[in-house]
Each structure stands twice: as structure tokens, then as C-alpha cells.
Amino acid sequence: MYVIEHALHIEKLASETIGYILGIDWKNSKSFGNGSTALSFNQKIQIIQDLKGLDKIDIQKFSDFMGIRNKFAHVLSIKTFDDFFNSGKNGADVKKNLIKYYGFENSEIDEGLKNKIYFYRLFSDLLQILTQKIAKHEFERGKKAFTSEYLLSVLSEVGNLENGDDVLKKAFKKVDPR
């Protein structure tokens, strides 16, 4: 349940992030809502991975998370992180990545607890990545709005000057000499 509950939080935030970026009310969306026609969790994560600005490690963290989530959600015999990490090449690769990202110096920590901490840190990183995507998009949206409003204000004020039309014509010629 620990893995599934955390996966549900990531799926919700992935839907919110994509909806926010695309200007879609994700809760009422056929693609991102909770209805039977909604995209799968995997498809939503693939869209997130396609977004510009994610580095290879962030993309891999989403893949690792999905590998864990899918095994816990679909394989009855996977009950612990050790079960997952010992379930084959994918489990072993994910374990190696988690150690690379979050390795512990203290070997006195119980392996089960260590694995749970690895997963929680992976979850926390994904929350941060998704939250930053929303923040960056909001910043860009605000910057564009400010730039547009500022430009319109400057154009209006210059246009009101005695020789404003001439100044604007000269400025536009420098930008587009056609």
C-alpha cells in the first residue's frame, strides 16, 4: 500500500502538471481525469518525460518509479522492496540507480528501512520535479504577460509624444527593415 499510495500522489500531480501546462481543467478532462477514458499512469509519465528541461537522470527517476509501481500494482508475489529488487534485471537496475542517487554511508540501517527511504526520496524528487515544472511554466506565462503589457504601455506612451509616430516607425524599421 505504501508504494500504491505514493504512486497515486504522483499520478495526480502529473495530471495537474500536464493540465496546467496545456491549459486544461484536468479534473474534468477526458484525458487526465479519473474516468475510464483517461490516459494511463504510464502514458501521463511518458508525456512528462517528453517535456523540455528534464535531464536524463530526472527521466530515469520517473522510469525507476514506474518500474517499482508497476510491479507492486500488478505482481501479487511482490510484497516488499527486496522482492522487487530480486525479481529480475529491472529490479536490480532500479536498486543500483537508487543507491547511486541516494546511497547511504551508514550500513547499520536495516535494509528494509533503507529501501523504504530510497523510495521515499525518489518520490520526493518526483514531487519536486513536477512542482518545478508548474512553477517554471507559471513564471514564463507571467513573463510573457508582463512583457506584452509593458510593450503595449511603452507603445502607447511613445505614440502620445509629439513625434511618437516617427519614433515608432524608426524602431519598427530596425526590427524589420522590409
Rank of each mutant, 00 (worst) to 15 (best):
I4H: 10
A7K: 10
L8R: 10
L8H: 09
H9S: 11
S15I: 01
T17N: 07
G19R: 07
I21Y: 12
I21R: 13
K27M: 10
N28Q: 10
S31E: 14
S31H: 12
G33H: 09
Q49W: 06
D50G: 15
K52P: 12
L54M: 09
K56G: 12
I59A: 08
K61Q: 14
D64S: 14
F65V: 08
G67Y: 07
I68D: 01
R69Q: 06
K71A: 15
A73W: 06
H74C: 01
S77R: 14
F81M: 08
D82G: 04
D83M: 03
F84Q: 08
S87T: 01
S87A: 13
K96A: 11
N97W: 01
I99Q: 07
I99L: 04
I99P: 02
G103H: 06
N106I: 09
I109V: 15
I109A: 04
E111D: 14
L113G: 00
K114N: 05
N115A: 04
I117E: 13
Y120G: 00
L126E: 10
L130F: 11
A135K: 05
E140Y: 12
R141K: 11
K143H: 11
T147M: 07
S148A: 11
Y150S: 08
L151M: 10
L152Q: 15
S153W: 08
S156H: 03
S156F: 01
G164T: 11
D165Q: 13
V167M: 13
A171Y: 06
K174A: 09
K174M: 13
V175R: 04
R178I: 09
